[in-house]
Design a protein around this nucleic acid. Structure first.
Lengths: 332, 332
DNA sequence: CAACATCGAGCACGCCCATGC
DNA sequence: AGCATGGGCGTGCTCGATGTT
């Protein structure tokens, strides 16, 4: 009985050339005559040849792969980046892997870094949206081919290639939109951030200041809906609050509920804006005004940067999508 | 200059044993004296040795890995399975990979199958919730270590190991809950299914029939919110409709919006129930009554089945979570 | 002398690269 | 310019050699 999978030497024999020539065809080296190349290609087709990726990785010293290191795979932004990386990697014929960092505890970070140190992981994309991710980013050894997807502006003090979406402008736009509607000021419920002054917060503050509006204290929330709900309750209790810029759409969901529980209508009594534009946002009741973020594009851009094919992917800038959750304040 | 990464032979030299003994320690073979083992372990620690996964895969003929083949990575159920597989795989020290099947077109399916045929992919988990996934499942060559996550009941006529969540009972519970509230019958907006009579639909129909209630025609919808919205519009136009069992929470979102647009209140005029219990469901306004589905558990179970450690993971059965979107019909 | 525990030598895995023709 | 040959990548496995009971 023959070997299950044909290998490069079988193809060589079938094509009447050396295995090295087959290798050249595989890695499309220029030094192969067209007709020779065709013979090899035919032989591959005939034998149903598929190169062994493990062997290739071993020989090359690194796999033709991309693995994403992330603290989460289901939250909208994270899942979007993952989707973009997978898509771009697949189109380039790369193996795509995934590794989650359970937390920012030293042991978890170390394990993740060791994991991607293995050559079979290929290039790595670190999603550094949180302490766990940025911990990995900082601990990453030099010389390892990688790029990080970070918050707007990148991580200060970290000397790594970083790519990001910049929603500062859109945050300002959203704030101005609310102000333009007649709200005296806009409150902000912030999601966790790795930087002092996030783009969302920065754009919001700048818009408020340049309009001469008061800058309320930021209300912090976590990634979980529960904490966002508490933040919403705090704001709902204050009848002076008529407009809230929420850190993301999930936050907006919980804030809206808290408002409802306090008997305050959206957008009748309070206007709310989110960030992300999750697929369901347009189908909310009322439909959510939010800032569209192209996380999949960010993921694709990371892979493109790693492939350094010269052409850097243009990222769609985050943009405000006005729907029904924002309206003029109720006149009294 | 020395080689960057120490290898098994360096460890052997440092420990004063043969490379084979080191290999035995690595694969914890019983035939190594405790003190010898300890010496090897110390040498590994000293040299910061990390086994090369590509080399191991090459020698073994298959990588210690698990890769999930799926048509999607962001929809709730798919992302949940992915999360479960990643978590379980990571805990077992496996490399975890991911490959999406772009569509159920023959070429896409073939490419995906070829991809996972490579030994470096290790064991395979196929998410067969749709035509693309089940296409891959059917095309999978025998002998490849795999298991599929499918809809309840598995795919008829496919001779593969399949694991699934069975929400038939919960679907019946949801229907009875609605009937018990006083609704004369319950309508159903179905999401795509690979089987004739899905568990959701089957449980719904059985509950209706055993209660002697009329069984309305099923309204089909796709995975996208837009089609669910159209389905909702059709139902919203019929004033006789007072209760709707939606294929999933996303569907419920769009149906609820359509109801609202038609001036029908939830749950005042119409009660709705979803499936999934997405994180935001509890924070809807009104909070959504839905059936909790443990997709991450399904993913973990798939990995456990592949590892065949004897202990099959017990799956949490889907269960109805009653919240605010269901109420007695308005008396007239 | 048999049976077992422990360890080592050599080769195979499938590909890529450097060298020489 | 184009092709053939040999060595190396880092493991795990088969087989056999020791020493021990």
């Amino acid at each position: 009985m023959k070997r299950a999978a044909p290998q490069i030497r079988d193809v060589a024999a079938a094509a009447g050339v050396s295995h090295q020539t087959v290798s050249r065809v595989l890695n499309d080296s220029p030094n192969v005559r067209p007709d020779t190349r065709q013979q090899v290609l035919d032989a591959m087709e005939r034998l149903q040849y598929r190169p062994n990726r493990a062997a290739r990785a071993l020989g090359l010293g690194r796999a033709k792969a991309v693995t994403v290191v992330t603290a989460n795979t289901t939250l909208y932004g994270y899942a979007g980046v993952l989707q973009g990386v997978e898509e771009a990697g697949r189109l380039l014929g790369l193996t795509v892997g995934i590794r989650v960092v359970a937390s920012d505890a030293a042991a978890d970070v170390r394990n993740a870094v060791e994991y991607v140190g293995d050559p079979s992981c290929g290039n790595v994309v670190v999603v550094a949206f949180d302490p766990a991710g940025s911990g990995v980013l900082r601990a990453m050894p030099d010389g390892l081919p990688m790029v990080a997807a970070t918050e707007a502006g990148g991580l200060p003090g970290v000397d790594r290639r970083m790519i990001f979406l910049d929603e500062r402008q859109a945050a300002a736009d959203a704030t101005r939109h609310l102000l333009g509607l007649g709200h005296r000021t806009v409150h902000h419920v912030a999601i966790p951030s790795e930087v002092r002054d996030s783009a969302r917060q920065g754009g919001w503050r700048a818009a408020l200041e340049s309009a001469g509006a008061a800058v309320p204290e930021v209300v912090p929330a976590g990634w979980d809906l529960r904490s966002a709900h508490r933040a919403g309750q705090a704001l709902a209790a204050d009848r002076a609050v008529t407009a809230i810029l929420c850190g993301n759409d999930d936050t907006a969901l919980a804030v809206r509920r808290a408002l409802h529980e306090a008997g305050r209508d959206v957008p009748g009594d309070v206007s709310i804006v989110g960030f992300d534009d999750v697929p369901g946002a347009a189908f909310w009741t009322p439909a959510l005004t939010t800032v569209r973020m192209d996380f999949a594009g960010l993921g694709r851009a990371c892979v493109a940067a790693l492939a350094d094919d010269g052409d850097p992917v243009r990222l769609d800038p985050p943009s405000l999508v006005i729907r029904e959750s924002t309206a003029p304040p109720r006149s009294r």
